[in-house]
């Protein structure tokens, strides 16, 4: 497929083109094609509502997304999904296992879903996911759901792209909840306690509510919901909470501004990172620099300065 075909395909909402476009932004980030693609589709974005879903592995995120996406589809809206899996630090390979839990709903409802491996790209991941989301947006999705494992800084960064951030927890996590709270508390729009069919779920709900009660909440009041993703219990409330949060963003200028700031930061950070990487690579690939490094004749801080301020690119 040619890049122009791909671009017009994305704008038409053609799945094959969308899929190929994603391959370009995740497969060759920052390339000419990727840049061109993003610029050409940019005027068509901004319609989709982005929902980020995070939480510990095995808590039922993928199952929940399968059900949620089915409900959204049945309401006549178009939904797409992006799910991130961790790559193996040893081989660089990965199992992209999120699909298995939602496949039935995806097939039944004709939902587009893309699995992406984290590939140890620290900051880069956020950018390529952000671009992926924008492609889906330009392709006509009304809702885009992003699943990440709630571990590590880059994960928090990724869900932070979302308009509505859902943090999924479950019964029996005990101390894990405490540990999670630290980073995640600030970004959650909605807390979901999944697996309420299992004992201990109500304790988890109560625990979260208590913690929330202690922290000052202005504007949006973060709800704590119990659901069962296997049989759909509690999904009505989940849907209406997502709706309420959408309304809140729409009507609240502060919230809107926050989101635009978030976006700007992601793009700027990525540009910065890419430019730094180019400079760094240029520096490292120069034989002479290697010798200088080994000799240790130049102070390492001086080297850093000269890399950062190398503007010839």
């Amino acid at each position: 497929m040619k890049i122009n075909e791909i671009i017009s395909g994305v704008l038409r909402g053609d799945k094959t083109s969308i899929s190929r476009a994603i391959s370009i932004v995740e497969g060759e980030p920052g390339s000419k094609n990727s840049r061109m693609l993003m610029e050409k589709i940019y005027k068509n974005i901004g319609n989709a509502h982005i929902i980020g879903i995070t939480g510990p592995p095995g808590i039922g995120k993928s199952t929940l997304i399968g059900r949620l996406s089915g409900i959204i589809t049945n309401s006549g809206k178009r939904v797409s999904i992006v799910a991130i899996d961790a790559s193996s630090p040893f081989s660089g390979g990965a199992f992209l296992g999120n699909r298995i839990r939602m496949q039935e709903s995806l097939a039944r409802n004709g939902i587009f879903m893309r699995s992406i491996a984290s590939r140890g790209m620290e900051g880069g991941l956020t950018a390529s996911i952000w671009e992926t989301v924008k492609i889906l947006d330009a392709g006509g999705s009304d809702y885009i759901i992003v699943e990440t494992v709630g571990a590590g800084q880059s994960d928090i960064e990724v869900v932070n792209l979302a308009h509505t951030v859902i943090v999924v927890l479950g019964p029996g996590l005990g101390d894990q909840i405490q540990a999670l709270k630290a980073g995640i508390m600030e970004i959650a729009s909605i807390f979901v306690v999944n697996k309420i069919d299992l004992p201990g779920a109500y304790i988890a709900i109560k625990d979260l509510q208590d913690t929330l009660a202690m922290s000052p909440q202005k504007g949006w009041k973060i709800p704590v919901l119990g659901v069962n993703s296997l049989d759909g219990t509690g999904f009505d409330e989940l849907i209406s909470s997502i709706g309420a949060h959408m309304d809140y963003i729409q009507t609240n200028d502060n919230a809107k501004e926050e989101i635009i700031k978030k976006e700007l930061k992601v793009i700027a950070m990525e540009e910065l990172r890419r430019s730094f990487e180019r400079k760094m690579n240029a520096f490292l690939s120069d034989q002479k620099n290697g010798e200088i490094l080994i000799k240790g004749s130049v102070n390492i801080y001086q080297i850093v300065d000269s890399i950062l301020h190398d503007d010839k690119e």
């Binding site: 790559s87 193996s88 040893f90 081989s91 660089g92 390979g93 990965a94 199992f95 992209l96 296992g97 699909r99 298995i100 496949q103 097939a107 699995s115 491996a117």
Partner: peptide, 20 residues
């Protein structure tokens, strides 16, 4: 084996239909 050879692997479970 594919993962250990550095590939990204998707396995959707048993009984997918050919169109799936």
């Amino acid at each position: 084996a594919f993962r250990d050879a550095g590939m990204e692997v998707i396995y959707p479970g048993l009984l997918p239909k050919p169109e799936d």
